[in-house]
Computed example of a mutant assay.
Amino acid sequence: MPFSGAAMPHTVRKRRRLAAVGALTACLAAAATLPASAATSAVAPGKGGRPTVLKVPAQYPTVQAAVDAVPAGNTRPVTIELAPGTYREKVRIGDEQHRITLVGTGDDRDDTVIVFDTPSGEPKPEGGTQGSSGSATVMVRGDDFTARNLTFVNDFDEAAHEINGEQALAVKTTGDRLFFEDVAFLGNQDTLMTDTPALTEISRVYVRDSYIEGDVDFIYGRASTVIEKSVIKALSRGSDTNNGYVTAPSTWKDNPYGMLITDSTVISDAPDGTYHLGRPWHPSGNPDAIGQLLIRDTKLPAAVKAAPWSDMSGFSWRDARFAEYRTYGPGAAPAGPDRPHLDPALADDYERSDYLRGWDPC
């Protein structure tokens, strides 16, 4: 699977796009059978029960304008088709806006880009700072959201600004049953946050055939998140010793399934032995946020440290639930005191279906 920016023959791109459209049609046909209430759906369904399709910019000038046309409590699937181009805007999908699909109609995910440049430390007019939610280019609070054939970017330029709070999210989610397929997430610190409405709640996120890049904690949060058949790029920060951290899970202590990275490839332009695979994030020092992460059947680059896990904010990584299973490549290493591996007897209990808990996305 070529990652973002890789050269790809036009015929291959077209074939992949047609396959994605076919999969989307099948998913939406199934979704159209869901019960609907006319009282809660101001967006009328298409003829024959087909999902509503909203087009940007043909019908709506911005992505957010199309999202705003979907009422709270929507019970019918709505597809928002984005023509190829760059949409410099923030997009907010509310916690009562469900069953929305964003799909780029170009030949490749690079053809359709949603981008903005807000850091978390940027002051808000009413006081305080933007934080993670305010910085995110795209925020998804609703359930049953899907994105395909798109690129999400936060292009805040760290080098050009002096600010306390350089975290700049491309996407933040809190909704449940969210499916990202053939998308790219581009940023530096905190690129992709998959979260839940509250620590003790469960949200499920599935990322497949996609590309994620960043440098510090750029895949993080407490949702049960599966990243499969994807490319993850750990960007160099120019250090000879520590270039960053790929993950920072903050899983609730009673949730056995935090993050799973499987059948994927991690790449890096950083020097050998300068990258951590992750560290445990305890928001506001909460001791009940005990990160869980398994990296299995995934290729690791030489940039990964021999001792790949790091403490964070006074919390030891050894108290978190970090492990590898059948990792390979120049950055992989046998099990040891600083390199926990999953017991093979437990491997069947930590697969995609376990993390997604009965949800079977298309």
Score class of each variant (00 low, 15 high):
N188A: 06
F322Y: 11
Y328H: 15
G278F: 00
T265P: 00
R352F: 03
H341A: 11
T101S: 14
A42H: 12
R17S: 06
D311A: 12
G134W: 12
A345S: 10
G238R: 10
T173W: 06
G285D: 07
A29E: 05
D68Y: 08
P256H: 07
Y211L: 03
A345V: 14
A136S: 12
S250N: 10
T52M: 11
D349T: 11
T62I: 03
A44E: 11
F145Y: 09
S37Y: 14
E228T: 02
L277E: 01
V207M: 12
R92H: 13
L293V: 04
N255Q: 15
K47E: 05
E201P: 06
L150R: 08
A303K: 00
K253V: 15
I114A: 11
I295H: 03
L192R: 02
I261R: 01
Y325E: 03
G134Y: 08
C27Y: 00
D343Y: 09
D272G: 10
A270K: 09
S236N: 08
E126V: 14
A83T: 13
T298A: 05
D354K: 11
V91T: 12
S37C: 03
T79A: 14
I163R: 01
V67S: 13
F179M: 07
D111S: 11
T200F: 10
P57H: 08
L82W: 13
T79S: 07
D190H: 11
G106P: 09
D311I: 10
A234S: 13
V91H: 06
I212G: 00
G244P: 00
R13V: 03
R208H: 05
T194M: 01
A248L: 02
F322C: 04
S120A: 15
D272Q: 15
V216Q: 07
V207A: 07
P51I: 02
D190S: 13
A184D: 10
L82G: 01
C362I: 09
R321V: 12
R352A: 06
M193P: 03
S41C: 13
Q130N: 10
V70F: 06
P301F: 09
A345Q: 15
